[in-house]
């Protein structure tokens, strides 16, 4: 326990040093080689515009809007995935349909169907939410059904032996049993939703008043504010890291890892 803890600390320190070296190389090469700031702004100027755009509220506003869209899209994806999975557990032909749909849709990046979504739903936030939902729903469904299938049958029989009804069996045995897969499904779903949200906004730009980080970058690109583009990317990276490293890692530590149910590593 102690050993792994100190290992993680060393790993973090090493990563930190690596990132510092990377940033220093960036700054130095910009300064020494006199690269045009339009192509490659210096790290200092990126930080400057990051601070400026944070203080004037624009970055925060954009970030909140992106997260808001992702929140809606992910919630719809998770709830519909649960309903679809529940239906396909109960009804055989639904399950076959879902398998076929999954095989077709899972490899398709959500952003690829954006043109169709625009035709059907127009260009407002609802289209971005639709792209997020479609990007996120398939990994959730796939992992949910893999998770349910991976539960040892004896555990289900123990549940039946204890007299659990269908609902209790699902809630207290099937869901926790499938949780490791559900969690990795959510991880993939989150990553895909995040990518979809930013990408969708960069394709059709959303509307001025209600754009997220993708729109921020998109707009800054057209005004050649390269340092601001970098600042937007930094926020995207930071949020991604925060959710992945702090959020999911934490959930994994207090659940799957504690239970010894890790599916990988």
């Amino acid at each position: 326990m102690n050993n792994t803890q100190s290992n993680t600390i060393f790993k973090t320190i090493r990563q930190f040093i690596f990132i510092t070296i990377l940033l220093a190389t960036w700054e130095l090469s910009v300064r020494l080689c006199d690269l045009p700031s339009l192509l490659f702004p210096s790290f200092a100027s990126v930080i400057q515009s990051f601070i400026a755009q944070t203080l004037n509220g624009e970055l925060i506003h954009r970030m909140i809007f992106s997260l808001y869209l992702i929140g809606i899209g992910l919630s719809i994806a998770i709830i519909s995935a649960m309903i679809i999975t529940a239906l396909s557990v109960c009804i055989r032909w639904i399950s076959e349909w879902v398998q076929v749909l999954l095989a077709i849709m899972h490899p398709l990046p959500g952003i690829a169907i954006l043109p169709i979504i625009i035709l059907w739903l127009g260009t407002g936030p609802q289209s971005i939410i639709a792209v997020i939902t479609i990007s996120a729903i398939w990994p959730v469904i796939a992992n949910l059904s893999i998770g349910l299938r991976s539960i040892p049958p004896t555990q289900i029989e123990v549940g039946r032996n204890l007299g659990l009804n269908r609902f209790k069996l699902t809630w207290f045995v099937l869901l926790p049993g499938a949780f490791p897969h559900i969690l990795s499904g959510l991880r993939i779903a989150w990553a895909r939703a995040w990518q979809a949200a930013v990408a969708a906004e960069m394709v059709f730009g959303a509307s001025g008043g209600e754009g997220g980080l993708g729109w921020f970058i998109y707009k800054k690109r057209f005004f050649l504010e390269t340092a601001d583009v970098f600042a937007g990317m930094i926020v995207i990276v930071l949020i991604g890291l925060l959710i992945e490293r702090v959020g999911f890692e934490w959930i994994e530590n207090i659940t799957v890892r504690r239970w010894g149910m890790t599916t990988h590593g």
């Binding site: 040892p152 555990q155 149910m261």
Partner: peptide, 27 residues
């Protein structure tokens, strides 16, 4: 199935892995 006839299985995975030893029994 009924709790008047409790089964002990051969396989080691019959405990619920997400519950502690105590919780498996109290549950």
């Amino acid at each position: 199935p009924g709790k008047d006839r409790m089964v002990v299985f051969q396989s080691f995975d019959q405990l619920f892995p997400w519950m502690t030893v105590l919780k498996n029994i109290t549950y």
